[in-house]
Design a protein around this nucleic acid. Structure first.
Lengths: 213, 213
DNA sequence: TAGGATTTGTGCGTATGTATT
DNA sequence: TAATACATACGCACAAATCCT
């Protein structure tokens, strides 16, 4: 990978994370010049990153105004969640990956971190762990297009979840998440990828219900 | 919509169509300077369009070499088709749209053009009609994310279909397509969107089988 | 209403990378 | 191997749009 492409990926992932963790809340104005200075580049490569984020709906650039972090339309987001649930289930049916010891070890690591989180619940750490569990779920299918689309939708809804956290009981959410991890581990140890996918779908569904509550 | 955004959309759709209709075949080198001159802009806005096409996997820019139209990896494409089939079916389940007289009239227009095509089969006209029928199918769901993702996948596989046409019997393909149009019309006149979606899925499945021959 | 400050969008010269002779 | 040609990537200066005083 070229040096330029490497930098592009780095800046893109950095900005995407800041947006999805609400470091850059909806409506915030991002300055090309400021960000370029922070990352030690000129505006040109940075604008290339912002263009991508704009194509993905995370920011919107307005001539003469600035680049604004988009707000999330709730009605649209519930539709996105509907679709995410279907894709999550498809992970178990389309080109399922082999359940390797490495995969199980990775999941064990997540379970352990879930336990640590339960001892000291904290929204931001929870969001990160959730994000990593999502990435883990993608590894369960060999269908690259499915992974791409799932990722696209995930980062489109990730902010909703973090915004809803203050209205939920954090400790309860962590407990539910730990149960999902445990259930997933049981399914994968049994080599049942489809079961793992159904568990994922079920938990997304219940999570949406709690958020809409 | 701003003038700049309008131009962006125009250039993007023009280049996407050229790539998907194989006017720009895989491997072809696109010149930023030449395209910019053709569309009467400088290289800067054109590069913005190429960046988007690159993010979508239709071209690949290499420093010092040029911007190349990507080739399609067949094994990956069959996976994309797997996913397209699932999404096509979802159109009948997620936020189904109302079957309006306007929609039926639009479909009748497609049926008529299908008949005209049958009288004088021609691959390029077929490809265009196919593309319009796809767009029609998107109108059947109100789930915007589902429309976006379906479109993304469609334009990623459209070239495969056109490349396979020489290996198939064009007149047969047109006949099959006309039957799909007729079946779809029957389903929608009965107000059965889910049936229409299943027909679509079935025909994508059979089309893939013929292409893989 | 006017004008200045600030922002993104554009155009172009140059740097850098690649392929060919 | 070196030189030449030519492509994209980059940085900067300026144009155009918007906002605030």
């Amino acid at each position: 990978m070229s040096e330029a492409a490497e930098r592009h990926r780095r800046l893109y992932e950095a900005l995407r994370e800041r947006i999805c963790l609400l470091d850059y809340p909806p409506g915030m104005r991002l300055s090309e010049a400021t960000l370029a200075a922070e990352f030690g580049t000129s505006r040109t490569p940075l604008r290339r990153v912002l263009a991508r984020l704009e194509d993905e709906g995370l920011v919107r650039s307005l001539h003469g105004v600035g680049t604004l972090v988009t707000d999330v339309d709730l009605e649209e987001m519930w539709q996105v969640y509907d679709l995410r649930m279907e894709l999550a289930q498809l992970v178990g049916r389309l080109s399922p990956a082999a359940v390797t010891p490495e995969l199980l070890a990775q999941l064990s690591g997540l379970v352990e971190r879930g336990a640590a989180l339960a001892r000291r619940p904290e929204a931001r750490a929870f969001a990160r762990l959730n994000m990593e569990f999502f990435a883990f779920g993608l590894a369960l299918t060999a269908n690259e297009a499915l992974r791409d689309l799932s990722e696209r939708l995930y980062f489109r809804t990730a902010r909703i979840w973090l915004k809803s956290i203050p209205n939920l009981v954090l400790a309860d959410e962590v407990d539910i998440f730990r149960r999902e991890l445990a259930e997933t581990e049981a399914a994968l140890r049994a080599g049942d990828l489809e079961a793992a996918a159904l568990i994922r779908r079920a938990h997304i569904s219940m999570s949406v219900a709690r958020m809409r509550g």
